[in-house]
Design a protein around this nucleic acid. Structure first.
Lengths: 301, 301
DNA sequence: CTGTTAGCGCTTTCAT
DNA sequence: ATGAAAGCGCTAACAG
């Protein structure tokens, strides 16, 4: 008899309505993902990691792009209520107040590289350790006149990297006069930064000998512009990035490796465990990046 | 009074339950995306295009990875009923019967690079035109002994590219004895293919002079392996890819450009128009790829 | 073991 | 104008 129903279902092409089931069970088996944007390999890699883990655990991923504006972010997150069981939120450009306001209290969330991690489960890249590693490497190989191409102001990662660049340089190079140029984390701003250096006459031989970009994409932009300007890398100027996106390996960029795929996967793992186990693990898990030395920082010798 | 309710809602932190609303309105404002896997830049780019368009039109994207198996694909698609308003399906490895069986008849779908497009809205890259363009370019620059690193058998794109490679070579090079090596669309299989060539003694100077890979990732793998083997590119052997993923530009790979972002965006556009306008546009839209000549095919001279 | 019913949180229709 | 009720398609807790 159960068999007869099944047969009829097949015959009529019946497919269960997941939405109705979710309503009834108060369980969607979906995870909402809130990201600034999908540009470049940085976010692709994270999403890939999340997708791998979500699929493995029987969850779907619901994507939503967050605009920089806190009000819009609020709308984006609220619109997820009832569609997902939990949220992975990456909002590096939101301040703590904006984040608190945007996050619906009712829905469990894990933050990645955002402020206000103390009270919630979170993942955080150790930006200071990463910058300390590249600066240390550059200084150890004899570079002294360093330039930093920064991330956007107000962005947690950008701010931390800029600050620790200044601190580390001040601590390791006496009488250093580090230069900090603004950037947006996008390739073009790496090129723009080099253009600025040229204007200031800092591309002249010996004026500067190392560029520490706040992420890989800007480092690549800088590389392109330097080569176009006829500056030898690493002969004249060494260049470093941050993240170790796949492209970096192909282009021989010295950088700091953050296991993006693993970070995404781990965020999903923690969220799902929380959803299913009920364990509230409000710790901030640090991701320690690792220095990867490639050709853009070889000794000039 | 309406105001009093709104006030109370704010105060209690009420957030509407999108799931319940969907049930009631029979509208989810979500689009399901079924992909083989998220590996490499190929799929990232497509998803990026879909996301851009979906966000612009007020839709969310629900990701689901399809396993090669038709039965699992069926489960994946069925599980989307009631969660999404429509589907973008990319199933290059499914045969027509498998696809028909997997697709829930009830839910509108648009296919990308899959079989059985005739009866449904679809997008399709013109593989033959793309391969004809690269082969033509290689032949025009004096290459005669060509090797093809193929995509997986049973994959629509892989099969089409392999076939048209053979046809085009047969038509344009008299007495040609083209070699076809198996591949998986992944970087490692490009390296493996070169290893195979080495075993067969085909890496000796003059033995072959051009490698046409079925996609960019395999071309990159081949490039790496060739350089490691001390073979000059393009001096000894020219190399071409397919897709023009972002990496290709950085590495100077000659390839065939498929506007992946645009293809994803266009698929979403057509689907949404269908959902909202009710117009059933069952045509297959062809994407004509464009030859992009870079350094890996420069003339040996 | 089969059949009925209430309810998930919303929208929509209908009555007041 | 506000209030009451039915129903979206399912699950779960009942009763027969």
């Amino acid at each position: 008899m159960r068999a007869r129903v099944q047969a009829a279902a097949k015959l009529l092409g019946y497919v269960p309505h997941a939405g109705a089931r979710s309503l009834s069970m108060a369980r969607t088996h979906a995870i909402g993902v809130i990201l600034p944007d999908l540009h470049g390999e940085f976010f692709s890699e994270i999403v890939r990691g999340m997708d791998r883990e979500a699929t493995a655990r029987g969850y779907h991923l619901l994507l939503s792009n967050m605009h920089a504006d806190a009000a819009l972010a609020t709308v984006a997150m609220r619109s997820m209520r009832g569609r997902v069981d939990g949220l992975v939120v990456m909002a590096p450009q939101l301040d703590a107040a904006g984040l608190d306001e945007a996050l619906p209290g009712v829905i469990p969330a894990i933050l990645i590289n955002s402020l206000r991690e103390a009270a919630r489960p979170a993942m955080r890249v150790d930006n200071r350790a990463g910058i300390a590693a590249v600066v240390g490497h550059l200084v150890a190989s004899g570079r002294r006149r360093l330039v930093h191409i920064a991330g956007p102001t107000g962005n947690v990662d950008g701010d931390e990297r800029r600050e620790s660049f200044l601190e580390t340089v001040a601590a390791s190079v006496p009488d250093a006069r580090p230069v900090v140029l603004p950037g947006t984390f996008r390739e073009e701003s790496g090129e723009a930064a080099v253009a600025t250096l040229a204007e200031r006459g800092l591309l002249a031989p010996g004026a500067i000998d190392g560029i520490v970009a706040a992420n890989d994409m800007m480092a690549l932009g800088a590389l392109t512009a330097l080569r176009a300007a006829g500056v030898a890398v690493p002969g004249g100027i060494a260049v470093t990035g941050f993240d170790d996106i796949p492209l970096a390996r192909y282009l021989g960029l010295t950088t700091v490796r953050v296991d993006l795929v693993e970070m995404g996967a781990r965020a999903v793992t923690r969220l799902v465990e929380r959803l299913e186990g009920g364990v509230a693990d409000d710790r901030t898990e640090g991701i320690v990046p690792e220095l990867v030395i490639r050709t853009t920082t070889e000794s000039p010798a």
